[in-house]
Amino acid sequence: MAENRLQTPAPNAGAVPFSRPSTPATHTLQIGFCGLGAMGYFMARNLASSRKSHSLPVLVYNRSVAKSQKLLAEVGASAVKVADSLEQVATECDVIFTNLANDAVVSSIYNEFAKALAQSPPTRAKIFVEMSTVYPTLAGDLDRLLSSNPHTHLVTSPIFGPPALADAGKLVIAMSGDYRSKKEVAFLLVPAVGRKVIDLGGNVEKAPTLKLIGNGMIMGANELLAETLTFGEKSGIGQQTVYELIKEVMPSPGFIFYGNKMVNDLFDGSQGFAIDGGIKDANHARRLSAELNCPMPAVDNAFRSLIGARAMYQAQGLAGTQRWDVLDWSALIASSRVAAGLNPFDSAQGTGVVRDD
């Protein structure tokens, strides 16, 4: 009987490349989450909901308190508590997740964490989990900043997937850093937040590097997708017909997801990935490729298209004709459309494809 139990696969076997951590004997983990943006909100919500019945409420912090209050209203006080300050999160929590907009914000937040820890040094293990898309060397800087405090570790853990997958708890999670800390974090995140962890070892710069590689692949694929759909429209075949072909011969989730956005002009960045974030990631990927002497022309092309699309949208803002507050990075198709003589953001004002039946 005991032998059969030993042979039974553990829950999420294969999704988490670590053995399960030992159960804390002295206290229940206090979890904190900073950054409730398009991705962070869903991750914090799912994490809090998964722990609602058997642990302390997740302590959440966001620069805009309204988002914290919205999350509290959605999941209830038994799952979420709103933090008054970053100092409270840093000192009261055992595991602190951060998902922030860019490197400058990450640096600012972590400097505030470090200041709080210097004033109140930890007496037990404390793990910071940085989930943003940052330049890899920043991760090393954060690790050095935090490691001056006793019992403190950094795990870099960027995530792959659009907001819809964050909502569904189906993200793919990269992870690098201290092994024991990764074990603790991985079993908090899977299956609550993500479906799989990819372990990149002990060097905290490796997970952010994989994130840039992955985002570079996605933006390069989006550039190809944009050019292909525009080519189809200008040829008289029609972008919808080309999109149907793509779904048949190259049915990857990314092509299907972003192709649908492009074909239907779904460029609301508040429901997706803001174009400024895409430009930031493209800059990081291009910088890293230059440092490694590894050309990425697909990323270079996507970067130009993203810059062009943003410039056109800013011009619409000056004219008072903008349709969305934030532009999605799938709107890079605007550059291909304009180069082909089409309307950048409204495909209904295209070539007026007429079938030759």
Rank of each mutant, 00 (worst) to 15 (best):
F257M: 02
L245T: 14
P253W: 12
S270N: 15
A221H: 10
Y258Q: 08
I237T: 11
E233F: 00
T230Q: 03
T228A: 14
A221Q: 12
M219K: 00
E248G: 13
T228N: 08
V249Y: 10
S270P: 04
L224G: 09
F231T: 05
I218S: 04
D265Q: 09
T241V: 15
K234A: 15
M219N: 02
N264Q: 13
N222G: 15
I218Q: 05
D268Q: 02
E233N: 00
F267S: 01
I246E: 01
P251M: 05
G272Y: 11
G254W: 09
T230W: 03
Q239M: 12
G220A: 11
I246A: 04
K261V: 02
V249K: 13
N260V: 06
G220C: 09
E248L: 15
F255D: 04
K234H: 10
E233Q: 09
I218T: 07
E248V: 14
E244I: 03
K234Y: 08
L224E: 10
E248Q: 13
E244S: 13
K261F: 04
M262S: 08
L224Q: 12
F231D: 07
K261T: 00
E223Q: 15
D268K: 05
N264T: 07
G238C: 00
L245I: 13
M250R: 10
T241M: 10
S252H: 06
G272P: 06
T230C: 12
Q239N: 12
L229S: 01
E244R: 14
E223N: 11
G269K: 05
G238L: 02
F267D: 03
E223D: 13
G232F: 02
Q240V: 15
M262G: 05
F231G: 01
S235Q: 06
A226D: 02
I256S: 10
T228K: 01
L225T: 00
G269S: 07
G272E: 11
N222P: 09
D268P: 07
I246T: 08
I237D: 02
D265I: 03
V242Y: 09
Y243D: 06
E223Y: 11
K234G: 02
L266W: 04
N222Q: 13
I256A: 11
L225W: 04
D265H: 09
T241H: 12
K247H: 02
I246W: 02
G232Q: 02
L266K: 14
G220V: 10
M219F: 06
S270G: 15
E244A: 12
I246L: 12
G272M: 07
G236A: 01
Y258H: 10
T228W: 04
Q271W: 11
F255R: 08
N264I: 05
E244Y: 06
Y243I: 01
N260G: 14
L245N: 08
P253K: 03
L245Q: 12
I256N: 10
I237R: 10
I218G: 00
G220E: 05
G232Y: 01
M262E: 03
Y243E: 00
G259I: 00
S270E: 13
D265F: 07
Q271I: 05
Q271V: 08
M219G: 02
G220R: 03
M262L: 06
D268T: 11
Q239K: 14
